[in-house]
């Protein structure tokens, strides 16, 4: 498939945005449980604001994918059958909840509404945080299912696509939370850094399993079933277009196979070992810049990962375009 930049930016930006938001809520939950000291309200508010900026940037990028962006509102119509439609509905919902969560912290709406059990004081921020967490996970699933749901793209049609999206998003979000804490000089950097490293390792497991699965994939369709001629030697002589067509542009990545391998190794290095080493080094040296570097490098790596994810997928229609395939 052709890796479109709009979709690469959309999926990586909102993934990190949701992850950062989840990191903020996790931080608050740990504080509620008294595992961590409660931070100033501003810490959560600004964190949520950054997450919101990422979500908005992702949404903006997605418009570049549309031929008719002015009609984008129509995409909410078919949520009963289309994962794309579901994503279009859940994304603004997540944005609204992230915004509300940030505002609630900023305005200090922390008077307990009610108390659960002995000592759990539930306030507005906690309720919004829980709702937002559910919505964020729903958005990860919707985004991933847009790809995993297309059965013809057999490289994508697996639950591993969903776990990849969840863990990549969460890892980069927690990495960003560590970078943010380091930037403002908050001691939570160790907490977020540790979680970021754990999530990155889980994402590595998921992605390696995905790569392994795809290396052994056996495609359902062949050129024989595509044109219905039973012969082992079928050569295409004409594709029905002199200068290519939508079919030769949309479904091929356009690079050669060496580029594909290069980018695969690129993301495997940039997403996994480098950020973990940097976070480890930051812990030892108590540096405030290394976590930021770790996030930036991982994010660049994730964009390469998304490019690779698209380029890996081979669509059955390519059987009709043998000289490009």
């Amino acid at each position: 498939m052709h890796p479109a930049f709009s979709v690469i930016f959309l999926t990586t930006l909102i993934g990190a945005g949701q992850g950062l938001y989840l990191a903020m809520v996790t931080g608050q939950l740990y504080a509620v449980a008294r595992f961590l000291p409660r931070q100033e309200e501003q810490f959560y508010a600004i964190g949520s604001l950054v997450a919101l900026v990422l979500l908005v940037a992702g949404l903006a990028a997605s418009f570049f994918h549309l031929g008719r962006p002015e009609r984008a509102w129509r995409a909410a119509a078919k949520w009963k059958t289309s994962w794309l439609s579901r994503e279009v509905i859940v994304l603004p919902l997540v944005m609204a909840l992230v915004f509300a969560y940030g505002i609630a912290h900023l305005l200090d709406w922390t008077q307990p509404l009610f108390r659960v059990g002995q000592s759990l004081d539930v306030d507005v921020t906690l309720l919004l945080g829980l709702l937002g967490t559910v919505a964020s996970f729903a958005l990860y699933v919707c985004t991933a299912m847009v790809y995993a749901g297309v059965k013809f793209l057999e490289e994508w049609h697996t639950p591993l696509t969903v776990t990849n999206f969840i863990f990549f998003g969460a890892a980069s979000g927690f990495m960003l939370a560590a970078a943010y804490s380091a930037y403002v000089g908050n001691p939570l950097v160790t907490f977020y850094g540790t979680w970021a490293a754990i999530l990155t390792l889980v994402a590595l497991g998921s992605r390696l399993a995905h790569l392994l699965r795809n290396a052994r994939i056996k495609h359902k369709s062949t050129v024989q079933t595509a044109i219905g001629v039973r012969h082992t030697a079928l050569t295409q002589r004409a594709q029905g277009a002199t200068g290519g067509s939508f079919n030769t542009r949309e479904f091929f990545h356009g690079g050669d196979s060496r580029l594909l391998v290069l980018i695969r190794y690129g993301f495997l290095i940039l997403v996994f070992p480098v950020p973990i080493l940097l976070i480890g080094a930051a812990y030892v040296t108590e540096s405030s810049t290394l976590p930021i570097l770790a996030f930036v490098i991982q994010f660049v790596g994730l964009m390469l990962e998304r490019w690779s994810f698209f380029a890996e997928a081979r669509h059955p229609q390519n059987l009709y375009y043998q000289s490009v395939a």
């Binding site: 994918h65 031929g67 008719r68 297309v150 013809f152 939508f246 669509h315 059955p316």
Partner: peptide, 26 residues
């Protein structure tokens, strides 16, 4: 009049029967 040109349907056709019009973007 409703199509937003998201190309998702073209991914879901195994035969490559759909083409996005390069000017009308539908």
């Amino acid at each position: 009049d409703k199509c937003i040109g998201c190309k998702y349907c073209s991914w879901a056709c195994p035969y490559g029967a759909r083409e996005l019009d390069a000017e009308q973007k539908v």
